[in-house]
Amino acid sequence: MAVILENGKLRAVINEHGAELVSLLAKDTQIQYMWSGDSKYWGRHSPVLFPIEGRVKDDTYQIDGKSYHLTQHGFARDMDFMVIEQTETSACFELRATKETKQKYPYDFVLQLAYQLDDNGISVTYRVVNPMEETIYFGIGAHPAFSTKLELADQYTDYEVQISPAKKRLHIPLKDGYLDLDQTALKDTDLAVSHELFKDDAIIYNLEQEPAVITLKSKKHGHGVSIEADDAKAVGIWSCYPAKGDFVCLEPWWALSDPITADGDFKHKYAINELAATGEFKTGFKINVF
C-alpha cells in the first residue's frame, strides 16, 4: 500500500513497505525528482537505514557477549510500517520491535518516520524511542536516490554535486565496504558527476554535525534537488558502478559503517548513538526541489 501526499505544487508517494519515499513530482513541470527504482541498476528509491548504516564487520556484532547477525543497512527498509497519522500533506509511519527483529537486534524500539510536504519539497523526521529501562545503541541514516534524467535530453555528466558552506571537508574512504580511517584527508566537495566517480564506492564527507546543504543539479537547465541537514554526522554520495544507472544518492547519516579495525562490540561501534532508558532521539532532513 502507498500513501499519497499532495498540495498545489507537488505530489509525493510513500510506500508503507519501508516507509519509503518513492515519488516526488512537480505538478507544473511534471519533473519526477526521485529515481525510478529500476532493479537492473538499484531497486530502491529512498530506504531508511536502521539500526545500522553501512556494515558491521563480517555482518556480525556482539552485545553483552552475545553475537547477532545483521546485514548491510539493517532491516527497517525491508519491513512494513504502520501509518499512525495522515493528512493531505503529511503522514507518520511507525515500526516497532518484533520477535524477528530481536533475533538480529536485541533491543525494544519504536521507530517513526514523519513526512511533511510543502511547496518547495518534503521534510523527513526520524524519531527513535527507547521503551526499555536500559540504554540502547543504534544507527540511522537516509539513502534517497535522485534522478539525473530530470529532462529527457539530460546526460549523466550534465550534473554536479556541491556541499555548502563551501570548504574542504574530511573525506573518509571505504575499503571493501568498511571505513579506512588511516586514509582520511581534507578534500574539496564540488564534484563533477560521472559513473567513474563512484568506482571506489560511496564518497563520504564528515559533516561534524553542523548545518549543511548538499545539492545535485544540472549544469545545463539548473533543475535539481538539495538536502538540508542540521546535525548529520556525515553524508554519503553514491551511485551504482560499474552499472550505469541514471541517479545519484545524497545520504545524510547519523551513523557510519564499521572501520576496518572494528572490534565487533556494538557498544564500541564507531559513531554509534546511545539512547538512555525511556529516552527519545529526533532528527531529520529536508528535500528541496527546484
Rank of each mutant, 00 (worst) to 15 (best):
V213T: 11
D190W: 14
G245H: 02
D188A: 12
L150R: 12
V248I: 00
I260D: 09
C249E: 05
Y241L: 13
E251V: 00
I260R: 08
H171C: 10
L256D: 14
D263F: 04
E196M: 08
E160C: 08
F146W: 00
K244I: 07
I260T: 14
K175A: 15
S194V: 11
A243G: 00
N206S: 09
T283C: 01
I227M: 07
V225W: 07
S218R: 10
H221T: 02
H223E: 05
P144Y: 04
A276M: 15
A255L: 01
S218N: 14
S218D: 09
T157C: 12
F247A: 06
L170M: 08
G222C: 13
E210C: 07
Y270N: 06
G236M: 05
D263T: 03
P173Q: 12
P252N: 11
D158A: 15
G264Q: 06
C249G: 02
I204Y: 04
H195N: 12
G224M: 09
P211V: 08
L174M: 09
A271E: 11
T184G: 07
P211G: 01
P252G: 05
D200K: 09
W253Q: 06
H171F: 12
G279Y: 15
D231E: 06
P144R: 04
H143E: 12
I227Q: 00
H223G: 03
S147W: 01
D188G: 09
K167V: 03
Q155E: 12
V161E: 10
D180Y: 14
T283L: 02
A276C: 11
